[in-house]
Design a binder for these strands. Structure first.
Lengths: 113, 113
DNA sequence: CGATTTGTTCTACAAAGTGATGTATATGAC
DNA sequence: GTCATATACATCACTTTGTAGAACAAATCG
């Protein structure tokens, strides 16, 4: 029986999803760029790395340094990878979101009167 | 042009959605019960009311006291209502969620290897 | 070499989430 | 009436998350 009662924060979820999506390209700058392109929300560099560190502390991702690339500014990157626990966490979040948004279609509007 | 750059927290979004869903039945205890039934997540009473107060401070909901009901323990309730700003906030959150979950189907799993 | 580009780390503070405790007000039993 | 029980809200202290800014590191280019 799993004890993953770990509720993700808004940014935590966003970052974790992006790590999952980017797969082998999941490193700080790329994650930040992807979120901005996808959602239009720009997060500060510090916000991103702090969140990544916390996800790692919780065991939802692991990371390792990559070899530098032979391009301008191509220094070593810290590449992140989803763990099994992280994946479970995402499934949990997915179920939660589906439960909450179910039937909300375009009813997302204020009551009149 | 709207300036609603207001990002909702996880619980804030959950509560705001529930207020929208319950419409005229949106008061503290009912909201808490609905969330628990829908998602299985039990939030403390304090968590709920604190969040509702914050949503009101932000102008996403309004509230008013209802008349007591002639049933056991039927004291006055504080009934919440989504504002136009709150509805915009939900639409924003909806777009965000769709962007982030798009294409994630059952790919929510750890990279193997 | 110094300028530029890409990338990560550190630090301090603000906002959101939580549980515990206390308070208020209704009916029902007696 | 008053005591028990049920429903409901408010406040507080504390933890966890979110955030910006600046410093630091390492690569190529001229």
């Amino acid at each position: 029986m799993y004890m993953t009662d770990l509720t993700l924060g808004t940014l935590e979820l966003t970052v974790l999803l992006t790590v999952s999506r980017l797969a082998t390209d999941a490193y700080g700058f790329a994650i930040r760029r992807d979120i901005a392109e996808r959602t239009g929300r720009e997060h500060s560099v510090g916000a991103l790395y702090t969140t990544l560190q916390r996800l790692q502390d919780k065991g939802l991702v692991t990371s390792h340094a990559t070899a530098p690339l032979p391009v301008r500014g191509g220094r070593s990157r810290r590449q992140y990878k989803l763990t099994a626990t992280g994946a479970r966490s995402l499934l949990d979040a997915q179920r939660h979101a589906e439960s909450m948004w179910a039937g909300m279609g375009k009813r997302v509007r204020p009551r009149l009167g």
